[in-house]
């Protein structure tokens, strides 16, 4: 196994507020890694630091063995990203956003194949605004896959989706997982995390509370479900 994402003692402040403190973890190739925590725990900031979007005070990040700031141009040919709460140009159609994203990379997958695989091909000529929440998120995954990435970053991909749409997105991610795609995701849904992730890391106030395989995390707590163990690790009251 070799490391695909290496985060080494990363610290980040906004003004005087410490948002990340001494964060270190490694994601191996082919692994699905979940970054969990309440809103404001530092998940999105951690992703921004990993992608080189924000400068950090301390620490070092390597993606596929390279520094994301220094080798941005070549590195991001191989990385697919879905940013939290991002959206699309007004009036743009599905095939147009695919074409625009494809134009950014040297080597791409045919987006028609991806649209077919994700059952979006019939909506190709529709305005993106008219898609349902689930369809939009599936489109976000399609766009992240266009550059044939080796790593995927998905920030709260399923937040706001209904149960059916959420499960549709899971199916697509599971298929990717089968094909040994490395994925780093954040989520608020423990059922989703159990379904998809190999290992998780729980953040609280910018610090790592606990990290490990899901069964390990549950075993460390007096509870039997991940949701209860999650709350217990965060020091919250577990109510039945």
């Amino acid at each position: 196994m070799n490391a695909c994402i290496e985060v080494n003692q990363v610290s980040k402040k906004f003004g005087s507020k410490q948002v990340l403190e001494d964060i270190s973890f490694t994601v191996e190739t082919g692994e699905v890694f979940g970054l969990l925590g309440h809103n404001g725990a530092g998940k999105s900031t951690a992703i921004d630091c990993m992608l080189g979007l924000k400068k950090m005070e301390n620490g070092e990040v390597k993606l596929l063995g390279e520094n994301p700031v220094k080798t941005r141009k070549s590195l991001f040919e191989q990385i697919g990203v879905q940013l939290q709460a991002s959206s699309f140009q007004t009036n743009i159609k599905v095939y147009e956003i695919c074409e625009e994203i494809a134009a950014l990379y040297k080597e791409t997958t045919d987006y028609n194949e991806l649209l077919t695989e994700f059952k979006l091909i019939d909506l190709k000529r529709q305005a993106v605004e008219k898609l349902s929440g689930g369809e939009k998120q599936k489109l976000a995954v399609v766009l992240a896959l266009i550059p044939k990435p080796k790593v995927l970053f998905l920030d709260e991909l399923t937040t706001g989706l209904d149960v059916v749409a959420r499960r549709q997105v899971w199916q697509t991610l599971k298929a990717l997982k089968k094909n040994k795609m490395t994925i780093l995701l954040t989520s608020h849904y423990m059922d989703e995390v159990e379904e998809l992730c190999d290992r998780i890391c729980i953040l609280k106030g910018g610090k790592i509370v606990v990290m490990g395989r899901i069964d390990e995390i549950i075993k460390m707590s007096p509870y039997e479900s991940l949701e209860e163990a999650y709350l217990w690790h965060l020091g919250e009251e577990v109510t039945k």
Partner: peptide, 17 residues
């Protein structure tokens, strides 16, 4: 301003362009 709100500009930072 719209593209900034929608994070379209930010997204370009995580592409080769």
């Amino acid at each position: 301003a719209d593209y900034r709100d929608k994070k379209i500009l930010k997204h370009f930072f995580v592409t080769p362009i």
